[in-house]
Computed example of a mutant assay.
Amino acid sequence: MGKRCPGWLILAVAFAACAGDADAPGSRTVASVLEEAHSAATEIIRDAGGQFSVGAFLARQNAELLVPQLAAVAAATDGKAVSDLNDVQQSFLNGTLNAADDMQRSERYPRKKATAMLAQADALLSTLTATYRFPRVLDFSPRYVVAPAVPTVLDLTVSGHALDASGPELSLQGKQCEVRGITEAQLTFHCELPGVPETHALAYATLTLVTRPPRPWWAFAVDWMRSDDAPVHYTLALALIPRTVGGFDAMARVNTGDAGLEASVPLPVGDVAWGGTRDITLPEGSIFVTLHGRQADGRVYEDTSSEAAPHPWYATTIDMRSRRMVIRARALDEALAQP
């Protein structure tokens, strides 16, 4: 793959100067641009998949949505050079690559950048004769759920363009969902999410959507001349959030009353549910307490009876006089909204 130069997508002169003896911008193939965008999407799926934030969920999931759309553009522009596209199409093609590349280089996964990737590809598909009715998924909800302990009913909504094909199908973890509604812009499904064993790590459930390009009204007249359109597959990842904010353990330093002797006493704390409260009574004679917390995203914090600052997902109050320690966890949506 040739050297990429900042600005080639906009300024042909700048690209030529940077590329040296490389081919002129007009002779570059659409396929090579799509290959770079696909590579960026693949890296986003890999890197964002291990991060614990709404932005990371969205980045991974939108990169997964982008992959079949890039394949559709590739099929519709097979053998074409960038210069064969009109100015509007070139702008959307370049925008798709820029947005994917920008998202791939990001560390915090801003939601606007994740949305921009799909918006540019969606616009490009709508300008190509072969794909303007290609089923384009731009959003689905929910994007994340708390991992259920037992099988749980889940209603899923898929939004986009040209989704009103006959017989769209969605499966969750390999189990078929019930279709509840079909329109051009939205599909709704009734699914069952299997129970998930207790875990303190982020996981993903697999959603598989199969649909077909909608057929024009006149298609019945030429059915005998044409084969059915190939199904379009979207493989999506539903983020499964651990059922608790994290795990906690504490140690109290206690005055035993024997000539000033002190002892360390472990305190049972355990996990704290999202939006939950854990109230712990400190041992008689406690003079100092240390609490260690490991959030579900891996971040570790320490609170003591002399210093207990609020943390992104929970806050601790330690009152030695009343011998009381209280851990108050944020609700899930509130916690994920924190930086």
Score class of each variant (00 low, 15 high):
167 G>T: 06
238 L>Q: 06
77 T>H: 00
321 R>L: 13
228 D>I: 05
85 L>Y: 05
4 R>D: 15
321 R>P: 01
45 I>D: 04
192 E>Y: 00
163 L>S: 04
320 M>C: 01
228 D>T: 13
118 L>C: 03
291 L>S: 07
72 A>K: 11
273 A>T: 15
46 R>M: 00
193 L>Q: 08
321 R>H: 11
283 P>R: 12
31 A>K: 10
271 D>I: 00
225 M>L: 15
306 S>C: 00
148 P>K: 07
146 V>G: 00
98 N>M: 11
59 A>N: 01
169 E>A: 12
334 E>W: 09
155 D>T: 14
87 D>V: 09
28 R>S: 00
34 L>T: 06
56 A>L: 04
72 A>H: 09
246 G>E: 09
27 S>C: 02
249 D>M: 08
274 W>A: 06
102 D>Y: 06
111 R>Y: 00
122 D>L: 01
134 F>I: 04
137 V>T: 03
209 L>C: 05
109 Y>K: 03
258 D>L: 14
301 Y>N: 12
166 S>P: 01
215 R>N: 03
81 A>M: 06
77 T>V: 02
210 V>Y: 05
159 S>H: 02
82 V>C: 10
154 L>Q: 07
66 L>F: 11
211 T>L: 13
154 L>K: 02
287 I>D: 13
189 F>D: 01
210 V>N: 13
292 H>K: 11
311 H>W: 09
163 L>D: 01
142 P>A: 04
83 S>A: 12
327 I>N: 08
303 D>H: 12
147 A>L: 08
